[in-house]
Design a protein around this nucleic acid. Structure first.
Lengths: 342, 342
DNA sequence: CGCCCAAGTATGAACGTTCAAATCGCCATC
DNA sequence: GATGGCGATTTGAACGTTCATACTTGGGCG
C-alpha cells in the first residue's frame, strides 16, 4: 500500500486518557466494561472520545485479545459462471450482519489446486478466527480439516458427508418445491410435471422428493411419465421440456430444479406455440435475475436469514452443540404460474 | 467469536529464532530482506520456519508497520438487484489478485443513511489502508471525502464529478458498442438501431455515442428514427423495441445498452414472429448470465483486468500521479447476432 | 601491525491495546 | 480506632512483530 501521510496522527487510547485525566485502562473499561466505571468518569471519558474522534486500533486489539473478530469467506472465480448469484448475495448479507457482532468479513480466493492451504494460511496469520463455508461439494475436504483443527466454522449448505456435524444452515429445497406444487394446483393446473437434474446430486434429489411429496399432498398421482431430467444447459433443458410437454396433457404445469431449466421449459412452451402461464405453468428455483427478467415464478431462498443464522451459530456457545437449521424458502409468484391473465 | 482452544499454540518468530539459533530480527530479515542474510543462515532459518509451520501474525505486523495491507470494498444490498453481477464479479477478481500484492480484501456494508461514517470508521480502526470504490454515482460524496482526507483509493468507474482525479479504471463502453455495430454490419445486417436508456446518464450517453460512431465508421447514416429509449424494465423495453422494429426495415439489428434491454428486444422480435439472429440481430451489454442463458450476443467488460489495474494503481508510487485507464471490452458472439444458422 | 569498513547479526524500544494484579479511598463492622 | 471489604482506578506486563541502532567479525590496506 502506498504510504501517504495521514492528515493527523490517529488519537490513541492514551491521548483520550490524558485528556480525560484518567488512566488508559479506565478508557479501555469505558469502551468494554462501562458498568465498571463511575458515572461521572464515564461521561467525561466518553466526551473526550467523541471530541478526539478516537477509534480503537483493530490490530492492537486483535494482538492483545488473541482474536480477530473476523470470519473468512471463500469466493470462487470458477463457480461464478454457473447460474445463480445466490452465493454473492449470501456474502453481501453476511457482511451486512457482521457489524451487529462487532465483526467483519474477509474475502479470500484459494488456489484451486490447494484449497486447504489458503484456509491454513489465513487462519495461521490470525486474520480470521473462523470461516463461513458455502458451496459445500461432495467429498469436500474443508469441513473435515476445519473440524480436525478445531477451527470454528459454519456452512451454508448441508454437510452431506459428515452427518454428525450440526454446524450448518441450509434451505429446505424440498419444502420449497412442495409449496410450488401446491401453488400450481391451487392456481388451477391439472397436472404438475418435474424437470430436474440427473439423479445423484443431493440437492437435486431433494428437490425432486419435494415434487413427489407435493403431488401426494395434492391428491395427485404420478404416472411415471411426468418427469424429465437435464444437465444445467439451456438447449438440453429445452429438449427435455419438449419431451415432457409432449407427454403431459392440457393445462399442465412444470416445476423445475433451477431457473435455467425453467428457462428451457419456457422456450419449449413457446416452441409449441403456447403461452407460459396461460397454457402451461412454469416455476423455477433460486429467483435469479433471469427469473425476474423473464417474469418467471420461482422459489426464493431466504439468503438474508441464512446469513443471520450463520453468524448466530458461529458465535453461539460451544456447548450445547449448535443445532443445524433448515430454513423454508418462499415462492415468488410471477406471470408464468398465473393461469388466467389478471 | 467463540473461543475454542487451538490444537497447539501458534509458533512465533521467537520460536523459530530459538530453533535456528539466531535472533528474532534475523528471522524477520529472512522473511522481509532475505538479501541481507548470509546464505547458510538463510537456509537454516527457512528450514525451521517450514518445520514449525510458522506464519507471521498479521495483527502484530500491522501494528508495528502501521499499515494493514488490506483494502476495503463496499458491498451494497440494495444495488444488488439492478446492474447485473458485474460488481460481484469485480469483488471476486479483486480478491483473486490480492495475494499477489500480499494484501487482502475486507468487505463492508455501510448504513445507507451515512455511507461516509462507515468509511471513516473502518479507516480509523486501521483495518484497511485504502479503498476500492465501485458504482460511483452522480454527486457521490465518497471520492471527495477520501481525497480530502488523503486516503488512497481507486475507483472502478469514472469519477464523473471530479475530472481532475485520475485514480480510476473504467471500461470503454463506447468502444464496446462501436465494436458491436461493426460486428453486426460485418455479419450482414443492413441497418443497426439503438435501444438505450433515457438521455442523461453518463454511462448510457457514452454507449449511445459508441453506436453513432459505429454507424459513421461503417458508412451508414442514421435516419434519426432508428433509436429508442427505455428504462431498465422488461415490459417497457419490449414496447420500445417493438416501436423501433416497426420503423426499421428488413435485415436490421439492434444494439442495446444493457442485457435487460436486449431481452426486451428479443421478446419484441418473437412477438413479430421473427427469429433473433436469422431475422433480426440483437446485441446486449454486460454479458450477464441472462445473456448466456438466452444465447444473446453481448459486450463483455474485462472485469479481471480492471481488478488487476485497480490494484496496480492503488499500490503505484504517488508521484507521478496515476493515469486513469480505459479498458476495451470484448464482444461475446452468440446466436442472436448470427444471421444464418451455422 | 593497527585501522577502518562492511557484512552479518543482535539488542532495546516501540506500535496500541487488554489482562492480571496492585493500589486507593471509603464506609460498615466489630 | 483498627479491620475488612468493596468499588473505582491505576500500574506493570504482555501480545508478536519491525525499526533504529549497536555490536561482532573478518578482510583489505596503509
Amino acid at each position: 500500500m502506498t504510504v501517504r501521510p495521514m492528515r493527523s496522527p490517529r488519537a490513541t487510547i492514551v491521548d483520550v486518557a490524558d485528556a480525560a485525566q484518567v488512566s488508559r485502562q479506565t478508557v479501555s473499561n469505558v469502551l468494554n466494561r462501562p458498568d465498571k466505571v463511575a458515572p461521572a468518569t464515564l461521561e467525561r471519558v466518553q466526551r473526550e472520545i467523541l471530541r478526539l474522534g478516537f477509534t480503537p486500533h483493530a490490530s492492537a486489539q486483535q494482538l492483545r485479545r488473541k482474536r480477530s473478530s473476523a470470519v473468512g469467506f471463500e469466493v470462487n472465480p470458477l463457480g461464478h459462471r454457473r447460474m445463480g448469484h445466490i452465493l454473492d448475495e449470501f456474502l453481501v448479507e453476511l457482511t451486512v450482519v457482521a457489524p451487529r457482532h462487532a465483526s467483519h468479513v474477509v474475502a479470500f480466493a484459494p488456489d484451486p489446486d490447494d484449497v486447504i492451504a489458503a484456509y491454513r494460511q489465513i487462519l495461521a496469520s490470525g486474520l480470521v478466527d473462523g470461516f463461513v463455508l458455502a458451496d459445500t461439494r461432495h467429498t469436500d475436504p474443508r469441513p473435515g480439516w476445519l473440524m480436525e483443527h478445531e477451527v470454528p466454522f459454519v456452512s451454508f449448505g448441508r454437510l452431506w458427508d459428515l452427518p454428525e456435524l450440526q454446524c450448518w444452515v441450509d434451505v429446505d429445497g424440498r419444502a420449497g418445491v412442495r409449496a410450488a406444487v401446491a401453488h400450481l394446483v391451487e392456481a388451477g393446473y391439472e397436472q404438475v410435471g418435474f424437470l430436474g437434474w440427473p439423479a445423484g446430486s443431493p440437492v437435486g434429489d431433494d428437490r425432486r422428493a419435494g415434487w413427489a411429496e407435493g403431488l401426494h399432498e395434492a391428491g395427485l398421482t404420478s404416472p411415471g411419465s411426468d418427469e424429465e431430467s437435464s444437465n444445467q444447459d439451456l438447449d438440453e433443458a429445452t429438449a427435455a421440456a419438449e419431451r415432457l410437454l409432449g407427454r403431459l396433457g392440457q393445462g399442465a404445469a412444470i416445476v423445475c430444479a433451477s431457473d435455467l431449466l425453467a428457462l428451457g421449459a419456457l422456450r419449449a412452451v413457446r416452441n409449441l406455440d403456447l403461452e407460459p402461464g396461460r397454457d402451461v405453468g412454469v416455476v423455477g428455483f433460486d429467483d435469479t435475475e433471469v427469473a425476474a427478467a423473464m417474469q418467471l415464478s420461482s422459489v426464493r431462498q431466504p439468503v438474508a436469514e441464512a446469513a443471520r443464522v450463520a453468524w448466530d451459530m458461529l458465535l453461539a456457545p460451544t456447548s450445547p452443540e449448535p443445532q443445524a437449521q433448515l430454513l423454508t424458502p418462499t415462492l415468488t409468484v410471477r406471470r408464468t404460474s398465473i393461469r388466467r391473465a389478471p
